[in-house]
Simulated assay, not measured.
Amino acid sequence: MKISPAGLALIKREERFMPRKYLCSARKPTIGYGHVILHGEERYLYQAITEAQASALLQADVDAKYGAHVAKRLTRAVAQHQFDAMVSLCFNIGTGGFDKSSVLRLANAGSTDAAAITAAFGLWNKYTDPETKQLRVSKGLTLRRGREAAMYLRG
Rank of each mutant, 00 (worst) to 15 (best):
residue 62 V to Q: 02
residue 97 G to Q: 09
residue 78 V to G: 08
residue 79 A to M: 08
residue 90 C to P: 03
residue 69 H to F: 15
residue 63 D to M: 04
residue 95 T to A: 06
residue 81 H to W: 06
residue 65 K to M: 08
residue 74 L to K: 10
residue 48 A to Y: 08
residue 55 S to M: 13
residue 93 I to W: 00
residue 92 N to C: 00
residue 92 N to V: 00
residue 57 L to E: 10
residue 71 A to N: 09
residue 73 R to I: 03
residue 86 M to G: 06
residue 80 Q to Y: 10
residue 48 A to I: 08
residue 63 D to H: 08
residue 83 F to K: 07
residue 56 A to E: 15
residue 64 A to T: 13
residue 82 Q to R: 14
residue 97 G to F: 04
residue 96 G to F: 04
residue 77 A to F: 11
residue 94 G to T: 00
residue 78 V to Q: 10
residue 81 H to T: 04
residue 73 R to Y: 04
residue 56 A to M: 13
residue 65 K to R: 15
residue 62 V to F: 02
residue 79 A to H: 09
residue 64 A to V: 07
residue 66 Y to N: 07
residue 57 L to Q: 09
residue 64 A to M: 11
residue 65 K to D: 12
residue 94 G to S: 07
residue 65 K to N: 12
residue 59 Q to I: 01
residue 53 Q to E: 15
residue 67 G to Y: 06
residue 81 H to S: 13
residue 86 M to I: 09
residue 61 D to P: 05
residue 80 Q to N: 11
residue 51 E to A: 14
residue 92 N to R: 00
residue 54 A to D: 09
residue 97 G to W: 03
residue 94 G to N: 02
residue 57 L to R: 05
residue 84 D to E: 06
residue 86 M to H: 05
residue 66 Y to F: 15
residue 83 F to C: 07
residue 53 Q to Y: 08
residue 87 V to H: 01
residue 73 R to V: 01
residue 76 R to S: 10
residue 73 R to H: 14
residue 64 A to S: 12
residue 48 A to Q: 14
residue 88 S to M: 03
residue 91 F to D: 02
residue 86 M to L: 07
residue 49 I to M: 12
residue 94 G to C: 06
residue 63 D to Y: 03
residue 73 R to D: 03
residue 63 D to W: 01
residue 81 H to A: 12
residue 71 A to C: 03
residue 78 V to D: 09
residue 80 Q to L: 11
residue 90 C to F: 02
residue 72 K to F: 01
residue 51 E to R: 15
residue 71 A to W: 00
residue 83 F to H: 07
residue 63 D to L: 12
residue 73 R to P: 01
residue 90 C to E: 05
residue 51 E to Q: 15
residue 84 D to V: 06
residue 63 D to T: 12
residue 87 V to D: 06
residue 54 A to E: 07
residue 49 I to C: 11
residue 52 A to Q: 15
residue 75 T to W: 00
residue 95 T to F: 00
residue 70 V to I: 08
residue 79 A to G: 11
residue 81 H to F: 02
residue 96 G to C: 07
residue 79 A to P: 00
residue 90 C to M: 03
residue 57 L to T: 12
residue 65 K to I: 14
residue 83 F to A: 07
residue 50 T to K: 13
residue 59 Q to E: 14
residue 49 I to E: 13
residue 71 A to H: 09
